[in-house]
Amino acid sequence: MRIEKHPILTFERGKEIYFIFDGKRIKAFEGETIAAALHADGIIKYNTSPKLHRPRGLFCAVGHCSSCLMTVNGVPNTRICVTRAKEGMIVHSQNPRGDLND
């Protein structure tokens, strides 16, 4: 779902890279956030909410809300809407909270 041609904007995309989300290999371009890359792949459900177990996805995209928290390279509660995808990153959805494993 990436926009290839735009009447006003040109998108200068970085190098093609890959990261792993819940076991799945996801394509991203350097400079993109994890959230943008997941979206481009059609993944819009990120998490299940901690108490009521409701599905949750992206919401604010500016790092202000808590809708997109994931464990990234072992660090829980990372806001993937403002965290840039890196080659080889391991991203996990959280259930119910993140794990602080050493």
Binding site: S49, P50, K51, L52, R54, R56, F59, C65, S66
Partner: peptide, 11 residues
């Protein structure tokens, strides 16, 4: 109706 996403609080 979710008022608070962070803590799952409803209306």
């Amino acid at each position: 109706i979710i008022v608070c996403r962070c803590e799952d609080v409803t209306l």
